[in-house]
C-alpha cells in the first residue's frame, strides 16, 4: 500500500518547533485585564491582606510582625464572637428557609398554573432591589411605634408584641425576614430552571406507576436535582458571608452589638477604629470560612464530574 509517493522535493524534517510567544498575540493582549485582575487583585490583594494580618499595623500598614497576636485579640473580643454567632444563626436559618421556600415556590409554579408569570414577577422583584432599600423598607415595617406591632395593637390587641429590631435576642431574625424576602426569589428561579430541565417522561412514568405528586418530588425529583441544590447552597453561602449592607441599613449592628456581623467588624476595624491589622485578621477569618464552604463543594463537583 503506497500512502506516500516518491518525494520530488526535499522534505527533510524541519528543526523542532520553537516556542512562538507572539502567536495569538491579540488574544493575549486582550486578556491582559483578566490576567491583571486575577493576579493583582484576587491573588495579590488577598495574599497582601493575609500577610499584613500578622503585623501590628494600626493607622497605616507596616511590616512589624506580631505573630498571631491579632488573632488572639480577635478571638478574645466579645463583639467578634457575637458576630460569628449571628452569622451562624443567620446563615443556617437562611440556608434552610431559602432552600425550602425557593423549592416549594418553584414546585408550585411548575404545576402548569395560571398567572405563572405574574407570580414569578412578584417573587423575584425584591432581588432587583439593593440591600440598603431592603433594609430600610423592613426597618420601617418592623418599626414598633408605626409598623406591624402598632397596627395590630390599634386593631384592639393591646398587648401584642412584635418588635424584633429592638430586642437583642430577636434582632437577627428581623434581619433574616428581610434577607429571605430579598434573596429567595433568586433561588426560586434557579430551582424552577432545574425543574424545567427534568425530562417530562419522568413525570409520565411516575403517573403510570401511580406515585403521588409529593412523593415523586421527594423520592425522584429532588435527588435528580442534586447539582442544582448544591449550586443554590453555594450561592446562598457566598452571599451570607458577605452580608453587610443589609445590616448597616436595617440596624447598623444594634441594639448595642447584638446584630453585628463579621463584615461590619472588619469595616469598623479598618476604616473607623484605625486598627488595620485587626481588620485584616478578621477578614482573613472570613476568607477561611469561605474556604470551608468552598472546598467541599469543589470536591463534590470534581468528584461528580469524574464519575459522570
Amino acid at each position: 500500500m503506497t500512502i506516500v509517493e516518491s518525494d520530488g522535493i526535499d522534505l527533510a524534517r524541519a528543526e523542532r518547533k520553537p516556542r512562538r510567544p507572539f502567536r495569538n498575540i491579540s488574544a493575549k493582549i486582550a486578556s491582559l485585564p483578566m490576567v491583571l485582575t486575577a493576579l493583582v487583585v484576587f491573588v495579590g490583594c488577598t495574599v497582601w491582606t493575609v500577610i499584613y494580618s500578622f503585623t501590628d499595623s494600626k493607622l497605616l500598614p507596616r511590616l512589624s510582625w506580631e505573630g498571631l497576636g491579632q488573632y488572639e485579640r480577635l478571638w478574645g473580643t466579645r463583639r467578634w464572637l457575637v458576630s460569628l454567632e449571628n452569622l451562624a444563626i443567620y446563615g443556617i436559618c437562611s440556608m434552610v428557609l431559602i432552600l425550602l421556600i425557593g423549592f416549594t415556590l418553584a414546585a408550585l409554579l411548575d404545576r402548569k398554573i395560571r398567572f405563572e408569570g405574574a407570580f414569578r414577577t412578584v417573587f423575584l422583584y425584591p432581588f432587583a432591589l439593593s440591600f440598603i432599600v431592603t433594609g430600610l423598607a423592613w426597618q420601617w415595617i418592623l418599626n414598633p411605634d408605626f409598623g406591624i406591632q402598632a397596627s395590630i395593637r390599634a386593631m384592639g390587641w393591646e398587648s401584642f408584641v412584635f418588635d424584633p429590631l429592638n430586642s437583642p435576642d430577636l434582632v437577627i431574625f428581623g434581619i433574616l425576614i428581610a434577607g429571605i424576602w430579598q434573596g429567595s426569589g433568586l433561588i426560586m428561579v434557579i430551582m424552577l430552571a432545574g425543574l424545567r430541565g427534568i425530562d417530562e417522561d419522568i413525570w409520565k412514568a411516575a403517573r403510570v406507576d401511580g406515585i403521588g405528586t409529593v412523593k415523586t418530588y421527594v423520592k425522584v425529583i429532588i435527588p435528580m436535582m442534586r447539582p442544582v441544590f448544591v449550586t443554590a447552597l453555594v450561592l446562598i453561602a457566598a452571599g451570607i458571608i458577605k452580608v453587610y449592607d443589609l445590616v448597616v441599613a436595617q440596624t447598623a449592628g444594634g441594639p448595642g452589638i447584638s446584630s453585628q456581623m463579621p463584615a461590619l467588624y472588619v469595616m469598623d476595624a479598618m476604616f473607623k477604629n484605625q486598627n488595620l491589622a485587626q481588620g485584616f485578621a478578621a477578614s482573613t477569618m472570613m476568607l477561611v470560612s469561605v474556604l470551608i464552604v468552598l472546598i467541599p463543594w469543589a470536591y463534590l463537583e470534581f468528584a461528580g464530574k469524574k464519575r459522570g
Partner: peptide, 13 residues
C-alpha cells in the same frame, strides 16, 4: 508548478 507532484502531502503528522 509541477503538475505531477502531489497536491497535498502530509509527513509524520
Amino acid at each position: 508548478m509541477n503538475m505531477h507532484a502531489p497536491s497535498v502531502r502530509i509527513r509524520d503528522l
